[in-house]
Each structure stands twice: as structure tokens, then as C-alpha cells.
Design a protein around this nucleic acid. Structure first.
Lengths: 153, 153
DNA sequence: TATTGTTATACTCTATAACTATA
DNA sequence: TATAGTTATAGAGTATAACAATA
């Protein structure tokens, strides 16, 4: 009796299909953002600062599960684009404070609309109950596995 | 009456939760593969060559939806690692043929087992019917939106 | 000493475009 | 000319580690 060696195919995994859809959604959103000169990672930082008013790189790094160095680099790029500003924290000589510029304040709602539109495009083929079920299943996995990291890219 | 400007939150989108789970699954798999000295993109190429026996960079590029340059670079790394070989195609002076080395033949089933284990870890919290429903919904989106690209990373 | 942030370095992933060899 | 493949270049994304300034 010969042993049958089964090597599962790439598409034998749920993770494969998940990544396929997730990548398509992200790439489509990236293309939409590109028209506004912004990347997905930049959008995440902009949206985060929109809520925070003024916050430090450290706190952003902790919130987004990224390193401080990564935030510095991302912030540098957004400063170059005139979308955020960085100033010394008067309360702590080591700290900096990041905040949106007025231009970014006006841009973020536009980017949010692009996010809404992108999401709509991909999931409008599902019935409301199906969308709800998809969300429930994803949340269940997140809860079961203790996933916490915010996906920046 | 003042206008209320609603800027949807990052987590207001299904795409956000999808990316969160997908990233967690991929990162976990990447860590597992790292123990074998292989990246996710490399695994995808190895698994593809496992089925093909011998194939050209062009065909691989078309299959995976990547550029020829990207395949060359990926192949270079796998050749350095002793996992694939590249030889001239006797039938076409321009073409090359990629194939797994014996070492990779032995490694791929091990990597496939890691993929199985990773998938199991993430989705074992769902009941069989839930897993089936998740797959069905993902496939529906793929069909509705005409998604074709194989996720290499 | 511990913390904040920047800088330096490195690596993966991927693309575009120029180029070489062959068809 | 068209195709196959490599090489060069670039840029996003991210990490680690060394460092300076401040607490």
C-alpha cells in the first residue's frame, strides 16, 4: 500500500480567500486614495488624528500597533504633503504633538466618503443579512483569537 | 440649523474588519514560515511550482498576477536558498524553466502542513456551518466583483 | 535610569522601464 | 517587430537598534 502524500492547495484555506477579498478591497481603496495623493497607511493616520485633535507619536504608535520609527516616517511624509503639523509639547520637553492641518480637516471627510463608496462597491452584492453575518463571523474570529491590531496597510 | 458632518470611523467598514482578520492570519502564517526560512510570497511560488513540475517565469507571472520582474527577484531569492533551479528551455532560446529542487520537494508538504495548522487555529472557533457560510460569502464577493488575483503577500 | 522621538539601516514586496537575446 | 527574461530604479511599508534630549 503506497502512502498518499497530500499537499493542500493554496485555495484549500479560508485564509486564502480572505486575503484574496481583503487585498482586492484594499487595492481598490488604495487606487481611490491615490487620486487624492494619499496612501492607505496615511489615511489611517489621518483618520486617527481627526479624532484625537492633538496627540503624540507614541500614543499613535500604541493605538495603531506600530513602532515609533514607523510613525515618524509616516508623519514626515504627511508633513511634506501639508496634511499634518508637528510641534513641541509645552508640557513635556521630550514629546511632540501631531495634529491635522486645516487642509487635512477638509480632506478627511472626502477620504471617508471614498472609504464608504469603496466598501459599498464590494459588499453591495450581499443582502443586509449576509453583510451582518459576515461582520459577525469576522468579529467572532477577532474575539476568539484576541486580535487587536488595527490594519494600517 | 447647523449641518452635521459625519466622518465615518475606520471600523465603520466591513473592509476594515476583513483586513484586520486577514492581516492577523497572514502575519501568523508568516511567523510560522519564518521558522523554515521562507516568506509568504515565496511559499506561494513554491506551492505553484509544486503543481507545475517545470514552468516559465512568464507563466508564473500570469498565474499569480505579478510582473516578470517580480518573479525574477523572487526566483533569485529561492535559488539562493537552494529551493528552486532555473535552466534554459531547450525549445526556446529566450525562455527559462523554473522547477523545485529535491530539497523543496521535501519542504513543500511541511509548509502545507503549516498552512493547514494556521488556518485551523484561526477558524476552528467557528462551527462547520459558519466556516462554510464565511467561505460562501467570500466566494460570492469574488464572483460578484470579478476578483481574480491570487494573493501572494 | 526610563522615556520620547528621530535617524540609520535593512529587508520584503511590488511596480515601471530600459535593455539583451532570441523568435 | 514581438516576446522572454533580467536588471535598474524606486517607493511603500515596516522593523530593529543606536542615539540625543529630557524626565
Amino acid at each position: 500500500m503506497s502512502e498518499i502524500q497530500t499537499v493542500s492547495a493554496l485555495d484549500a484555506h479560508l485564509g486564502y480567500w480572505l486575503r484574496m477579498v481583503s487585498n482586492a478591497v484594499s487595492q481598490s481603496f488604495a487606487r481611490a486614495l491615490d487620486g487624492e495623493g494619499v496612501t492607505v497607511a496615511e489615511w489611517v493616520l489621518l483618520r486617527t488624528l481627526h479624532d484625537a485633535a492633538e496627540t503624540s507619536p507614541s500614543r499613535v504608535a500604541a493605538t495603531l500597533g506600530m513602532t515609533k520609527g514607523a510613525i515618524t516616517k509616516l508623519a514626515d511624509r504627511l508633513i511634506d504633503k501639508g496634511l499634518i503639523r508637528r510641534k513641541a509639547d509645552p508640557a513635556d520637553g521630550r514629546a511632540q504633538l501631531l495634529a491635522l492641518t486645516p487642509r487635512a480637516r477638509k480632506l478627511v471627510p472626502k477620504l471617508a466618503a471614498l472609504a464608504d463608496a469603496n466598501d459599498g462597491t464590494f459588499f453591495s452584492g450581499l443582502k443586509p443579512a449576509e453583510r451582518a453575518e459576515l461582520e459577525r463571523l469576522l468579529m467572532k474570529i477577532i474575539a476568539d483569537r484576541g486580535i487587536t491590531e488595527i490594519p494600517a496597510s
